[in-house]
């Protein structure tokens, strides 16, 4: 594949409709396709894709490749990879955009290796060098301490985009597009891994990724018990509770609470960080928060360089006073 044309997005319609990360990719892809002066296509893999395909067109895709197969109904990495590899080889896109979800984290690198091309991983922003028709990708490295600008040397140029780095594309039902059925030959023996059980351990209440207010606790809390106080504050404010990696590693809360580079990416309106130093690896998961509030006894903690409001003090004293005052305010 020496050359290619167009932008291909790997869409996710596993819930029957397009995922929020797909809508974000559509926003990123529209801009890239427009700068290249080329088409925007979406690949959808599954067994019932009609509604999602129409939605992709309304959200800005000129073409949708519907890869319908009963074996693609549930996500299985080998089968999805086989289908994607075939689609990329056949349609020869110039650019492929993938969301860096848990699936994208494995699909994008493996697809790149299969195609013998490079991957710009975990990008915050992609732009186009229009003269060279090169994708330029901004990606945090060294846990977010630095930003690297990279480009891919072969075609297709693949980039994995961090969730929530882009606002979702807007729908416009007057848009026209074409749905193209792309047949693939798959059989069950191609799946080298089998899921034998799924265990859900999501916290009760509002999902961390969807919450408008998040209150996270870190290493400085010293144990699991103080999380009850964070839960109390979250309840008053209509928010939800998260945690730093240190708190998860200590076993104080389940890993589904973890915010950060290797945990969840959140973009709440208000993010209250209690006893978290604010290492770049944590900030990588919350830099999209509109307002950050820090409570930390260490005045030198990095978090005071990132927060909008801060209180320097021991959480054990500050938090109950904050909670009591907020309870009063919300009741009045």
């Amino acid at each position: 594949m020496a050359d290619g044309t167009g932008v291909l997005i790997l869409g996710d319609a596993s819930g029957g409709e397009l995922s929020s990360t797909t809508l974000e990719l559509l926003a990123a892809g529209q801009k890239v396709a427009a700068d290249l002066g080329e088409d925007l296509s979406v690949a959808l893999l599954g067994d019932t894709l009609d509604a999602a395909a129409q939605s992709a067109i309304a959200h800005g895709a000129q073409k949708v490749y519907a890869v319908n197969h009963p074996l693609l109904a549930d996500y299985q990495v080998d089968l999805h990879l086989t289908a994607l590899e075939a689609l990329c080889k056949d349609t020869a896109p110039r650019v492929v955009l993938v969301a860096r979800t848990n699936e994208g984290r494995e699909l994008a690198p493996r697809l790149a290796f299969r195609l013998g091309v490079g991957l710009a991983q975990d990008c915050l922003e992609v732009s186009v060098d229009t003269a060279e028709k090169q994708l330029l990708a901004n990606r945090p490295v060294y846990g977010g301490n630095a930003i690297a600008v990279v480009s891919c040397d072969q075609t297709p140029q693949i980039a994995a985009i961090r969730p929530k780095a882009y606002e979702p594309a807007e729908a416009d039902s007057s848009r026209q597009g074409e749905v193209i059925s792309f047949p693939v030959e798959l059989d069950a023996s191609m799946a080298l891994t089998q899921v034998v059980e799924t265990v859900l351990e999501e916290a009760e209440g509002i999902k961390l990724e969807d919450a408008h207010i998040v209150i996270s606790g870190g290493r400085g809390l010293g144990g699991p018990e103080p999380f009850a106080q964070l839960e109390e504050l979250a309840k008053i404010m209509g928010g939800t509770v998260g945690a730093s990696r240190a708190a998860v590693d200590s076993g104080w809360v389940p890993s589904s609470y973890q915010v950060g580079l290797t945990g969840k990416t959140i973009t709440p309106d208000l993010y209250i960080m209690v006893a978290i130093s604010g290492a770049s690896q944590h900030m990588a998961g919350c830099s999209g928060a509109k307002v950050i509030v820090a409570i930390n006894k260490d005045a030198e903690a990095n978090i005071f360089k990132e927060a909008r409001y801060g209180v320097v003090g021991d959480w054990e004293t500050v938090l109950p006073a904050l909670t009591a005052a907020l309870r009063e305010l919300t009741q009045s």
């Binding site: 490079g118 490295v141 690297a148 600008v149 990279v150 480009s151 909008r308 409001y309 801060g310």
Partner: peptide, 18 residues
């Protein structure tokens, strides 16, 4: 496969109100 075009430390202009 990949060309590094630039590498820089991001600047935060956030002012924290203590």
């Amino acid at each position: 496969r990949i060309t590094l075009r630039d590498l820089f430390v991001p600047v935060s202009d956030q002012e924290c109100e203590i």
